[in-house]
């Protein structure tokens, strides 16, 4: 097992090299000039040239890329053109914001999706099955931005129940320990803060959960239907086991493998920054951050943040693969 993990981590190096080359070339290929976007359209030529020189943009691409890699090797993610702050500082609160939102959304998606899928399979063609599968079809087809806006309109504007944007209401203070506000508010026993964070998480969390939830429900249902017809389920019934044991242990564990694949992939995608959701709900996460940085042609931020996302993606996949082994003992990792 340890061997396998080490091997996978070594494989991370070429992956990251590839990602860095791709992002570097793509960001430089997009037309646009960081200097001009910083100084505005009315800036004079001289100031622009000076700024370009200062940012190292006049160096050959290879030199620029080399410098980026060199800094990276020393653990330096670079400095933002725009804010002049180190990228690592910028990510310190934004990465936890995205991870917190993703975990929250995936928790909703997994619990609701798996449960709906299992019940739909066990009660195939029942009203519940029809209802949840219609819901799932809507879930995969509804555009997130539309759903998000509708939720804001209903719950914030009309009913005034939930805040429309951000992670915290103004005036609410949470001592940042981990930058995961839910966790921080628990650690500091700040219950009013916890409630405020939770309210802020609810709408973006549900919006973000919609698609994964629908996919997980569909996948769980079809996988469960297949497993419920297997001989070992008949054996479990013939042993006189209670129905919940047959369904949730004997069947679900076998049916879970394809579901896990979907969960792992969706997790990776969401962690990569749910750009739409974060933008609609003004969530201060990395998705919105990368988008803003691309628009500002903030090269160091884009390059480094995408690299960080790639690392997370690879780790999520690694964890998924290890979980496979845990669920199905027939799978060999070596």
């Amino acid at each position: 097992m340890l061997n396998y993990i080490i091997r996978r981590l070594v494989m991370l190096i070429p992956v990251l090299l590839g990602v860095s080359i791709l992002t570097f070339s793509m960001i430089h290929m997009i037309p646009g000039d960081p200097a001009r976007s910083m100084l505005g359209t009315k800036a004079n030529e001289k100031a622009l040239t000076e700024l370009r020189e200062e940012l190292g943009l006049n160096d050959p691409y290879l030199v620029q890329y080399g410098k980026f890699l060199g800094d990276l090797a020393q653990g330096d993610l670079g400095t933002s053109f725009k804010t002049k702050a180190p990228v690592s500082d910028e990510l310190e609160s934004r990465l936890p914001a995205t991870i917190e939102l993703t975990l929250f959304a995936m928790a909703i998606a997994m619990v609701v999706g798996v449960l709906a899928g299992v019940i739909s399979a066990v009660k195939q063609y029942s009203w519940f099955d029809n209802l949840s599968m219609t819901g799932a079809l809507f879930g995969v087809s509804i555009p997130i931005f539309w759903l998000g806006l509708m939720m804001i309109w209903l719950f914030s504007v009309k009913l005034g129940w939930l805040p429309a944007s951000g992670r915290l209401s103004s005036g609410v203070e949470i001592e940042a320990i981990t930058h995961f506000y839910l966790l921080d508010s628990i650690l500091t026993l700040n219950w009013s803060g916890f409630a405020d964070v939770f309210k802020h998480l609810l709408m973006p969390g549900v919006a973000l959960a919609t698609i994964p939830m629908a996919i997980i429900a569909l996948m769980t249902r079809s996988s469960m239907l297949e497993v419920m017809n297997q001989d070992y389920i008949r054996t479990a019934d013939a042993k006189g086991l209670a129905t919940y044991l047959v369904v949730f242990q004997h069947a679900l564990k076998n049916a879970f493998l394809p579901v896990l694949t979907v969960i792992g992939l969706q997790f990776g995608f969401l962690l990569g920054g749910a750009v739409l959701t974060e933008t609609i709900f003004s969530w201060p996460g990395i998705g919105r951050f990368v988008l803003q940085s691309i628009l500002a042609r903030d090269y160091p931020v884009v390059q480094s943040t995408i690299l960080v996302i790639a690392v997370i993606f690879v780790f999520v996949n690694l964890i998924t693969d290890i979980l496979y082994k845990y669920i199905d003992p027939r799978i060999s990792l070596d």
């Binding site: 297997q230 001989d231 070992y232 008949r234 054996t235 479990a236 242990q249 004997h250 564990k253 076998n254 669920i327 199905d328 003992p329 027939r330």
Partner: peptide
């Protein structure tokens, strides 16, 4: 071959 649950 198929009557025992493979994951337990």
């Amino acid at each position: 071959m198929t009557s025992l649950n493979p994951v337990f």
